[in-house]
Structures are given as C-alpha cells and as structure tokens.
Amino acid sequence: MNTYRIKHLRELEAEAIYIIREVAAQFERPVLLFSGGKDSIVLVHLSLKAFWPARIPYPLLHIDTGHNFAETLAYRDRLVERIGATLLVGSVQETIDQGRVVEERGVNASRNVLQTTTLLDTIARYRFDAAIGGARRDEEKARAKERIFSHRDEFGQWDPKNQRPELWNIFNGRKLMGEHFRVFPISNWTEMDVWQYILLEQIEMPSLYFTHRRKVFQRDGVWLADAPFMMKRQGEEVVEMDVRCRTIGDVTCTGVTLSMADSVEDIVNEIAATRVTERGGRYDDRRSDAAMEDRKREGYF
C-alpha cells in the first residue's frame, strides 16, 4: 500500500477529462451540447479544466425549443460571456417553420421529440463530427448500455445491437464521411456524483435548481410549471408552491419538485433522502416504458 490514493469524484473527473481530451484530439469539428441543465454545466466546467489555460477548443450548441425558462437563457448567456466561448443556437421554431416537423397538438404537446430533427439538422449544417453530451448511464435503462464514444450513422441513428466494443481507455472515433459520434464523458456519474462534484468545485448554478415560488399545476402526479404555452386540462388548477427543478429542460416536460432546498448542500441532502429517480419527474419518459430507447434510436440526445 502507498499514499497514492484517489477519491471517487477525482477519479470520475480524471476519466471525464481524459475523454474530453480524446474528443479534441480525435475529431476535427467537435461541439458541446449545452442544455442549461446541471449535467451540461458540469461538462463545461470539465472542459475548462481539460484545456486550461487555453480556451475550450469547441463551441457550445443549445437546441432551443422556444419553451425555455427565462433563467436558463440568462444563465447561458452569462456563462458563455465569462468563459469566452462561441454559442450556437439551433431553433426548433425554425425547423417547424421550414415544415421539417409538425408541431404536436393537445394538452401533452411537447417539442421534446421535435428537437431531434433540429439537432441533426444543426449537426449536418456545421458538419460537426462529434457532439459531447451530458447523458449518464444511471439515468435510464437504454443509456446503461450505451458506449462513451457512441457511433451515429449518416442518418444520425444509434444501433444498440451493433455498438463498437469499448475496452480499457481506448476510444475508437474513426468514422465515414457524414457519420458522427455522440460522446458522453460523464457516463459513469450518478445524479449524486454530479451534485457532490458541484459542491466540491463550487460551481455556480442556475437559480431554477434552488427553491423558489412558482405557479405550478399537477398532471398525473407530476408537478409542471405554468407558462402561457402550457395547455391545461379541465380541473388542472394553477397554484403557487415552493419548488425547484431537479432537471432542467423544455418547460413542457420538466417536472418540478416541491422543495425548500436553497443551497447545493441542501440539494445533496435532499437527493440522499429521495426515493424517486430524477427522470421519474420527467413527463416525457412516462409516455412508455421504452420511450427513451425509441427516441435514442432516432438520434435524440
């Protein structure tokens, strides 16, 4: 035995930085998918660490459904300003206006699925060959099997049955023209790891993650934020509650939790005590048991 011991967060960090540097070395046109959520914020932080004192050698890409929390956009713009990164925005509204996709109708209408087309269009337009994403294997069953360097064919599709073997530290990013990779540096992190890391590194987080009073209503057991574009069913009553977001995404499918947590420490303690997964609060995954797998095959995040 010797004194060269490394704790789990530092080991996860070292692994993520290694993966991020592999992306910069192996690909010509990488991009970081930035949603404004905690996972992509941690990815930006890890990217800063990986290349310091140089700037992050790739732009950030936000796929904008048009249904954002105002706080997300404010945070995004401040972050980009502070780190001197380039921000690109792919607009779902534009994709709809171009007639590439048709807006869903009804009370459960969401632009979450439509994002896939915008994402793939944007990747093709800028000829990105690697898109770094913040997905984690603990989030969802379909993700548990996905590789860290995950190959996408020229249609942007994932083939779970035909994934490349991934061994040791060796990541194979070779591809044909028109294909790309999704790369997931924090695959091995859990929700708890992410928050503990935020605490350890004192990363500034958007206010949405902390308790605040908000107009909300309940649907099928999930609390949803109210907004002008949120259609309500009869009997769905808007009330004011103390809530916080556990994940941040498109407003139409981001469930909020009743919570009084107003510091990262509170959040860590809250997660330690919670008995529901973070995606359990996401309305989009409730549609079916295999919802995520279907979306991923098509090219979703």
């Binding site: 704790k7 789990h8 996860l12 708890m192 503990q196 420490e265 303690n269 997660i271 330690a272």
Partner: peptide, 14 residues
C-alpha cells in the same frame, strides 16, 4: 449514519 455532504470526500471507486 452517513453525512452525504461530508463523507463523500472520503469515498473510493470500485
């Protein structure tokens, strides 16, 4: 007993 905001710094990964 376990304090998640303190104990986490001492955990290892297997």
């Amino acid at each position: 007993t376990h304090n998640p905001t303190q104990g986490y710094l001492d955990m290892e990964l297997l």
